[in-house]
Amino acid sequence: MEKQKSTFKTKVGLAEMLKGGVIMDVVDATQARIAEDAGAAAVMALERVPAQIRKEGGVARASDPTMIQAIQKTVSIPVMAKCRIGHFMEARILEALEVDFIDESEVLTPADDEYHIEKHDFDVPFVCGCRDLGEALRRVGEGAAMLRTKGEAGTGNIVEGVRHLRTLRHGIRALTTLGNEQLMTAAKELGAPYDLVQLVAKEGKLPVPNFAAGGIATPADVALCMALGAESVFVGSAIFLSEDPAKRARAIVLAATHWQDKKKLAEISAGLGAAMPGIELSTLSESERMSTRGW
């Protein structure tokens, strides 16, 4: 029987499997093992977590294949990796490594300040960041099989993530109230493909799963994002820059499952040790912001 590999449905299918599961940033095989043991549904292999990129500066690029392969050998859960926005050759290299998902990420330094990657050309699925419905649907139009609302990565501050979750949710609700004759103008204003605007207006939800990412530091942050419509979370710097990574990782996994249960959340949140320090966003200059990258 003929098998059709890497269809858009199989790409979105993997995103469906990751729902309610936490995707954790890891920089080596040891961290990957800790993440898997704590119940991570996938790991994101990268050389420096966002908080380190922020501190050290310089150009942030895709990771060395050696470290990605070491992580693939260590864990049985899906392994994701990041490429720079628009850098389709970094993406080709990651595809050759058979990573399970590529994150075309604003956390790395953009390689193209006008265009994102044409993701339909790839067999491997992509996840992309978004701040609002227009950006979300542009990425899906390019072939993204999963979205994540952008927080301000590496800050341990949830405020940007919350803003973008709310903006996205408002955008979706607003579309569902429009008449058919209003959808073309809405598509123009959103800068989004008309067919996807029609789909969202009809279904009242995005065509692919949406997770939250950036600034999530505590189980309560996870629950907040889920309550605002995220289908799960990416957690970057917050785990391995905290006092007790294994304990915090497990607490964050539990929060993604039990986010509706306040008593459980209280238990989960207790005695985790110090969270990562965090940054107040008003102290960041415009050029230090990562979430504004993406076109």
């Binding site: 029987m1 003929e2 098998k3 059709q4 590999k5 890497s6 269809t7 449905k9 199989t10 790409k11 299918g13 993997l14 049985s76 899906p78 595809e95 058979e98 399970d100 998902f101 067999d123 491997v124 699925p125």
Partner: peptide
């Protein structure tokens, strides 16, 4: 587990 391969080997087909 993952007996048909990684994500790149995920597929659609018709059963017997």
């Amino acid at each position: 587990r993952n007996g048909y391969g990684r994500q790149l080997d995920s597929f659609e087909a018709r059963s017997d």
